[in-house]
Amino acid sequence: MQRVNMIMAESPGLITICLLGYLLSAECTVFLDHENANKILNRPKRYNSGKLEEFVQGNLERECMEEKCSFEEAREVFENTERTTEFWKQYVDGDQCESNPCLNGGSCKDDINSYECWCPFGFEGKNCELDVTCNIKNGRCEQFCKNSADNKVVCSCTEGYRLAENQKSCEPAVPFPCGRVSVSQTSKLTRAETVFPDVDYVNSTEAETILDNITQSTQSFNDFTRVVGGEDAKPGQFPWQVVLNGKVDAFCGGSIVNEKWIVTAAHCVETGVKITVVAGEHNIEETEHTEQKRNVIRIIPHHNYNAAINKYNHDIALLELDEPLVLNSYVTPICIADKEYTNIFLKFGSGYVSGWGRVFHKGRSALVLQYLRVPLVDRATCLRSTKFTIYNNMFCAGFHEGGRDSCQGDSGGPHVTEVEGTSFLTGIISWGEECAMKGKYGIYTKVSRYVNWIKEKTKLT
């Protein structure tokens, strides 16, 4: 034993070699072989497995989906700052455009905790909710729209109204504003409101030439003092309507412009014939205590009207009353817009006519005020429907199939267009061939041609 100890002390290297040989010859039971080890760690190889990531292109799944990435790591994937920024906006807080917040056709661009709407022409605001041009839906104005110097929408209202708090709607500024039905039992019968379409306001006024200088022999019209197929109006439903009495009662109609003036057809009036105007009328054979009678003290036909040349060209006249009318729910003026808007309103496509005229061709006159909704007829169809001249200051309205029309005794009465609950004068009943005849239409004086003249002559002093 002493000898062994001496050998170990003198030859430590020998001992180490012996131990190493023993270990190498022993069977290893701690580690699995290569094949079995792979069965336990069965993990798919990654895209760049075996390579240094710093030297390969980034992978979106590896960089940002398996674990949260930084902007720089995302930049490695896209290799483009702009594309990385677009991805980053949604990656950080989701897609803010998912709810489609942009209105009126706006395009949404996502941002971090926010979004941006790219608005089409005519709109602005956070969600493109603000109209900035009158060309689109009248700028959301209830009545009139004008573009300011910086191309912003400025709404306005006709006389007797003021802008509401929203700067879009119009509200009454006087007790009985024009064009409004205020009798409670008839307010439910107000005709369907007309909503502004998209309009090209630059070209809204037709490029028409008034044929002022045409000389033409007097034409022989049949029954051209021209509501057939209409309905009984309720008291106060058309408070701007008046009836004219002269040699015979209810020979023509008219509309209240203001307390002192009536507008009617020029062919209705004769110099030297006494005319009485009755406002607030409903049943011409009954006294309903809503009527107001006034005498006409002055007749002003349009300066281009000449019955000797043509009885229905420039067929418009103004009547001055001896005493002002007292405005109330049964006696209310009709609204008159400017030339541009009167023309736009007419193009809405349908209007209402009213009167006490004959209820059928050569038949009896109506006792109760009649009204009828009539569609506008395109000019080409209008011209083809008659052998008589249709001037540019006239328009056609009615039904091709016949059966409904204005008729004798309705002449001078109103053709009105309702705009968001307020009625505007767009025409004056003038003439036609018979009444409600198939293929024939009622012919009306186009008020847009005469609004400046009306307003100039009827100013209240």
Rank of each mutant, 00 (worst) to 15 (best):
R3G: 10
R3M: 13
M6H: 08
I7K: 15
A9Y: 12
G13M: 10
L20M: 12
V30A: 11
N38G: 13
K39F: 07
L41C: 04
N42L: 08
K45F: 04
K45M: 12
Y47F: 13
N48Y: 13
S49N: 14
G50P: 10
E53Q: 05
E53G: 09
E54H: 10
Q57D: 15
G58Y: 04
L60Y: 09
E66F: 04
K68L: 09
F78L: 14
E79H: 14
T84K: 09
T84Q: 08
D93E: 07
D95Q: 09
N100F: 08
N104G: 02
G106V: 00
C108M: 00
P120F: 03
G122I: 01
E124R: 03
E129K: 02
D131T: 07
T133H: 12
C134I: 03
N151E: 07
V154I: 12
L163G: 02
A164R: 08
Q167E: 07
E171P: 03
P175F: 04
R180M: 06
S184A: 14
S184M: 05
K188W: 10
L189N: 13
F196H: 15
V199A: 05
L211H: 13
N213A: 06
I214N: 08
V227T: 11
D232M: 13
F238E: 01
F238K: 04
F238C: 04
A250M: 06
C252N: 01
C252I: 01
G254V: 01
G254A: 04
S255C: 07
E259S: 09
I262Q: 00
T264R: 00
A266W: 02
A266S: 04
E270G: 09
T271D: 05
T271I: 09
T271F: 10
G272S: 10
T276Q: 09
T276R: 10
E281N: 05
E286P: 06
T290F: 07
T290V: 05
N295E: 13
V296Y: 01
I297P: 02
I297Y: 05
I299L: 05
A307D: 06
A308C: 06
K311W: 04
L318Q: 00
D322K: 03
V326T: 09
E340D: 15
E340M: 08
F345G: 01
K347P: 01
G351Y: 01
G351W: 00
Y352A: 06
G355V: 07
G355K: 09
A366L: 09
A366E: 15
L367N: 13
L367F: 12
V368C: 05
Y371H: 12
L372C: 11
R373P: 10
V374Y: 02
R379D: 08
A380L: 08
T381L: 08
T381P: 05
T386A: 11
T386P: 04
K387A: 10
T389M: 07
N393D: 10
N393H: 12
M394C: 04
A397W: 02
F399C: 06
G403C: 07
R404K: 02
D405H: 12
G409Y: 11
P414K: 01
V416W: 15
E418P: 11
V419S: 05
V419F: 13
G421M: 04
T422Q: 03
G427L: 00
I428G: 01
G432A: 13
E433L: 05
K438H: 15
K446A: 08
R449H: 15
R449V: 11
Y450K: 02
N452M: 06
I454P: 00
K457I: 14
L460Q: 11
